[in-house]
Design a protein around this nucleic acid. Sequence first.
DNA 1: GTCTATACTGAGATAGAC
DNA 2: GTCTATCTCAGTATAGAC
Lengths: 189, 189
Amino acid sequence: MRTYTDLSITAARIVDVAESLIQRQGLNGFSYNNIARAVGIRKPSVHHHFSTKADLVHVVTQRYVDRFISQLERLDHSHAAPKDKLLSYAQLFQDTSQSARLCLCGMLGAESESLPNPIREHLQTFFNANLLWLTATLAMAWPRRAGSAQGTALLLLSSLEGAMIVGRTLLVNDAPMQAANALFDQLDS
Amino acid sequence: MRTYTDLSITAARIVDVAESLIQRQGLNGFSYNNIARAVGIRKPSVHHHFSTKADLVHVVTQRYVDRFISQLERLDHSHAAPKDKLLSYAQLFQDTSQSARLCLCGMLGAESESLPNPIREHLQTFFNANLLWLTATLAMAWPRRAGSAQGTALLLLSSLEGAMIVGRTLLVNDAPMQAANALFDQLDS
DNA sequence: GTCTATACTGAGATAGAC
DNA sequence: GTCTATCTCAGTATAGAC
C-alpha cells in the first residue's frame, strides 16, 4: 500500500486537496473530478497518482494521523505547563473549526460504516493516541483528579469532536474552545 | 413542502428506512435503491412518495427533530429529579449509539455543507432546543454552578455527539454514557 | 400505488497516444 | 505525467401502462 512519505509535488497537492474536501464534505461528498479541477489537471491524471479512491483516502488518513501525533509529541517536548498544553491541544481543534473543516478522523469516523478496514485502523490509532495523551496530561494538570483522568480524557476528546459539528451548524466559530474551557473551569473549581 | 404528519403506511416505512440509513451511512451514503430494497418496493415507487431526495431528507429531519423535542418535554413533565432527567437525556444518546447509529442531526451536521438550507434550519432548531433545555436543567441540578450552565450545556451536548463517533470507531459501546458520567462526577465534586 | 422501461448524469476506472 | 476517448455502473429522476 502507498505511503505519504515519498509523494511527488503533484501527488502532494492531490493529497492536500483531498484532505480538505474530506474534512468539508465527507468521504462520499467529493469525486476525482472535484480534485482534478482544484489541482488543475484532468481526472485520469489523478488516477495516475492514486489508482483508486480507497488508495487516496488511505494515504490522506495516514498522513493526517501521523502529523497529528507528531503535534502531540511536539506539545510534550515544549516544557509548557500541563494546563497550557491542554489549551494548545484544544486550540488545534479550534483552528480546524475556524477554517470551516471538521477533524478528518471525526468526519471519517461518522462515515466509518462505508470505510475499508485499513482506514478504520488508522482512525483507531488516532483516537487511542489522543486518549492516551489526554489521560496523561490531564493527570499532570489536575493531580487531585488523576483517578478520573481516563473518563475526563474521553469527555474532552468527544466534546471537541462534537463541538466542531455543533459549532458549524449553529455558526458559532469558537465552539471547541468554549467546550474545552467549560471543562477546564469545572476542573479548576 | 411535505410534512410527516399525514404519511401513508408505505411513506412512513420509507421515512423509517431513510432515517436509519442516514444515521448509519450519512446523507451521501445511501440511494433510493437501498430504500426500495429495504421497503420491498421498486425505485420509482419511492419517487412516487418523495419526488426528490431533498424532499425525503427534509421530512425525515423534521420528524426526527420534532420527536426529539417531544422527548425533552416528556422528560420535563416527568417530575424526576434534575440529575435523573440529565441521566435519562444521556441515555437517549446511549440508546442510539447501541443501535449502531449516530444522532441524525450530528451526522447531517457533519455533512451540512452539502445540505439544502431548509434542512440546515431544522438542525439549528435541534441544537438550540437541546442547549436551552440543558442549560435550564443543569442549573437546576447544580444550582451552585448555575452561572456556568450555558457553557456546560455546550460541553455536554458536544461530548454526547462526539462520543457516538469516537465510540463507534473504537468499538466502545457505552461512550456517550461514559462521557456524560465523567462530566456529572466533576459537577458533583 | 406500483410497476417496467428508459433518460440522463456523474462517478470510478482503463486504454493508449503524446 | 498528462492528455483524449471510452467503458461500466450507479444514482436521480420521468413516462406511461396496469
